[in-house]
Design a protein around this nucleic acid. Structure first.
Lengths: 342, 342
DNA sequence: ATGAAAGCGCTAACAA
DNA sequence: TTGTTAGCGCTTTCAT
């Protein structure tokens, strides 16, 4: 373990001023003698010099630090999103902080403060589920932040800052249309927990389209799952008892749980039951799947979110303060055909 | 979006010196009038003051920053580990940087340099697979770092810094013992990619125990998978053709792939084939499983790793430089009984 | 008991 | 063309 080498030491060794070293090593348009430049570079390389970004940030007012707060990194969707966001930030020369809020508003708040103390240049926030019920508190915190904030996936408060998310209602619609095409007449939907607004919207889009096609509530069973495999497994029997021939699950994990239960009962998919899932994230984690599902392109979400935040960072940086109206981008999910609809 | 409030502004508003404000807000043992203290605190709260940790770090020489580099956050094991590490750091008052090296030495190296420039207090590194073949380069980089480094899970270079990992050989042994107990005589093992040393050790431990029980290589089939579901699925037939009655998979995902293939063939587990997996990480992601497996307690790994790094940080901090011999902790994996061995 | 001053490592404005 | 100076926001030593 070595001690850090400073600019000043290089300056002394090269017998020039610290400023000269700074100019050279940052390739600033200075007209320092080629020969001196080389000497400085050589010494820096030899001493293994690495600039102290924090000190630099203090004077430049840019730390190139981004914070990302997710509700749960053990959720494959967020893990994948985190990866792509980190990639985007990294490519743009920013380092990324990552934390879990554990879907708790209190944690989220503490993390935000902590990161803001780090003088970050921007924040990417996937709000906790609790924040849906503490909108004002979150709004205040965002308004008080010294840097731009971009909301991702859960547009808790669209009026205070920009947000990027998928159109969940549209996803539900796609599922319904596909199942109607296959001439089904009796449906089930396994949604998420009651406070999960996104799952709620998927379910709503699904049901709305069915209603539009003269399917009455008598032919629609809506259940609340918890997004886990076991939840689909446990609810499968109720779907079968109801006599549904088509099922829409608000994520793939629950869909797989249902399929597992059907397999145990000796029932075949899609003959016994047509199934559409949601996310199409499993394959990234090495899980093959023949599931028909509604894909949310996580790469696109990451890229758009970063673009959105970056735009604000540039603007913020060039002085113009963000009196611009806030924008919300809704991305469109896509149906990915598998072998589980007939 | 607000401008940041500085210490100086509070000082001016409270009509005291910046030093006084610093002392009060940091609860330093100063003898400043209670009344003044309260005034300072009130103003700080009213103005929403948040200390600038970077500026503070510049003078205290402690940034409370930790970097974590993982090969792939889309690997459930690492995602889970990242979560627990972040938790541990956070509890100790440290913020965590996270990045993917994508199992490439070049990326890893660039990330290390980048984080070191941030003046981090410590680094948690899960080396890339490539680093197994570039040991000297990695060693050099670790030795040149200004902060302690702790290796996790892949003990590429145990002599240059501390490391914490699971005993993979022991895991393989446990699997073999369990299957021998069940009186199997013909075995298969699906290992990882050839350059994956950990998977190799699992396989080696497995085979060694078999040899110790007079099972010859004629009764042992070793295959290389790629840790993905599809890989187990694809190799299942060769296992069956070989006539094995017991299979050890070096991760759970491949074991599930095998099971899927067996189900399609109308074969039952464990009657047709006994299976033991590795990791027991799926349940954290909502995947139920009846698999018998070798569990690596990821929480314990995270806690131990953090303790290890933290010990060095404290020592480093209190001046004593780490001339201490490096230590390697090997954690013991546990067999978790499921329903897939008979 | 409190405040002034120096300095952490760096860059930007200015002088020479 | 180059080097000097001031200062980013904070803590700490030392003088008052």
């Amino acid at each position: 373990m070595r001690r850090r080498v400073t600019l000043k030491e290089i300056a002394k060794e090269a017998e020039v001023s610290p400023a000269a070293v700074s100019l050279v090593l940052n390739n600033k348009p200075s007209r320092i003698a080629k020969e001196t430049q080389q000497r400085i570079r050589d010494i820096a390389a030899r001493l293994n010099y690495v600039v102290n970004e924090n000190a630099r940030g203090l004077v430049t007012n840019e730390t190139h630090l981004i914070a990302l707060i997710v509700p749960d990194i053990e959720n494959m969707f967020f893990a994948s999103l985190a990866r792509h966001l980190e990639e985007a930030c990294h490519e743009a020369g920013y380092a990324l902080f990552l934390s879990n809020s554990n879907d708790l508003r209190a944690n989220e708040s503490a993390l935000m403060t902590n990161y803001l103390a780090r003088d970050i240049d921007g924040m990417l926030l996937i709000p906790s589920l609790e924040s849906y019920r503490h909108t004002r508190q979150l709004q205040r915190q965002i308004a008080d932040a010294h840097c731009p904030v971009t909301l991702i996936d859960r547009l808790v408060t669209a009026h205070i800052c920009d947000g990027v998310a998928f159109d969940n209602t549209q996803g539900g619609r796609l599922a319904a249309q596909r199942l109607l095409e296959a001439r089904h007449r009796r449906f089930a939907c396994i949604s998420g927990q009651v406070d999960d607004v996104n799952a709620g919207n998927r379910m709503r889009g699904f049901v709305d389209v069915l209603h539009g096609h003269h399917i009455t509530d008598d032919d629609i069973l809506v259940l609340n799952g918890n997004y886990r495999f076991g939840s689909g497994y446990a609810l499968a029997d109720r779907v079968l008892d109801f006599g549904a021939t088509a099922l829409f699950c608000c994520n793939d994990l629950m869909a797989m749980g249902v399929m597992q239960r059907l397999a145990e009962l000796g029932l075949h998919v899609p003959e016994a039951l047509s199934i559409i899932g949601y996310d199409n994230i499993l394959r990234r984690f090495g899980m093959a799947s023949r599931l028909t599902t509604i894909e949310q392109d996580v790469h696109k979400l990451a890229v758009r979110s970063w673009e959105c935040l970056y735009r604000h960072i540039r603007r913020h940086d060039t002085g113009k303060d963000c009196v611009t109206a806030t924008r919300t981008s809704l991305l469109t999910p896509q149906l990915v055909a598998g072998e589980t609809v007939a």
